[in-house]
């Protein structure tokens, strides 16, 4: 049990990872996409900061390097990278994590509360984002091309993350990377279809990128 936070070690690691995601989101939205800097997002960061004070629980774990690579892949001053990499893909990965752990009987009450707050913040971003993508990038083929450019680095970085997630969370919480990615893909495809992206082309891109092509 982690004395400082009152949650066990694997949950402390989860909080640290989510803190990395959400802190990066707040910084990037402040710089490049202020419409996504919502009160819900600020609230989840505040909640995370009550328990997370640095990367200690992440450092030295199998997830440290993959999380560094994942966050580096979306860190950018470029608006399209922020909207697509952070606002679309990383938000949906975060939301899938919140959903999986928030509905999990093995998680503690503080973590379930965090997941509820995080889910609300991600859901709010998901409401706002399609309008921003439509306005700032476009729809259909134009959006697909932007996604192919901006999300490829993130997708390439996911393989090592999968290994770490399964090693860290599968036995304890029954959360697998395959299930998380299924959840993420389902939401991604729904968002893209609503923005007139060709479904077959998008799935083919997603598959190619995940296969490392």
């Amino acid at each position: 049990m982690n004395v400082i936070t009152g949650i066990d070690r694997s949950e402390a690691l989860l909080w640290t990872i989510l803190d990395r995601f959400e802190s990066l989101a707040v910084r990037q939205y402040a710089d490049s996409a202020r419409a996504l800097l919502t009160p819900e997002k600020a609230a989840v960061v505040t909640l995370l900061r009550t328990r997370v004070h640095g990367d200690d629980d992440l450092t030295g774990t199998p997830l440290a390097a993959p999380i560094d690579a994942l966050t580096a892949s979306v860190t950018s001053a470029n608006e399209a990278r922020v909207l697509i990499g952070q606002g679309l893909f990383l938000e949906l990965i975060g939301e899938a994590i919140y959903r999986s752990f928030g509905e999990n009987v093995a998680t503690s009450e503080p973590t379930r509360a965090l997941c509820a707050s995080g889910s609300a913040a991600s859901a709010r971003v998901r409401e706002i984002l399609p309008g921003l993508l439509r306005e700032r990038i476009g729809t259909g083929e134009r959006l697909l091309q932007a996604i192919m450019n901006e999300a490829a680095p993130l997708l390439r970085s996911l393989d090592d993350l999968g290994e770490g997630i399964d090693a860290t969370f599968l036995d304890r919480f029954g959360v697998s990377f395959a299930d998380l990615m299924g959840d993420v893909a389902a939401e991604l495809i729904a968002v893209c279809i609503a923005l007139d992206v060709d479904r077959r082309k998008f799935v083919a891109f997603l598959t190619s990128a995940l296969m490392g092509m």
Partner: peptide
């Protein structure tokens, strides 16, 4: 649709 995607992607991810 989302259920079907989640199911199929979940099955393919270990293969990928």
């Amino acid at each position: 649709q989302k259920d079907a995607t989640k199911h199929v992607v979940g099955m393919f991810m270990p293969l990928i």
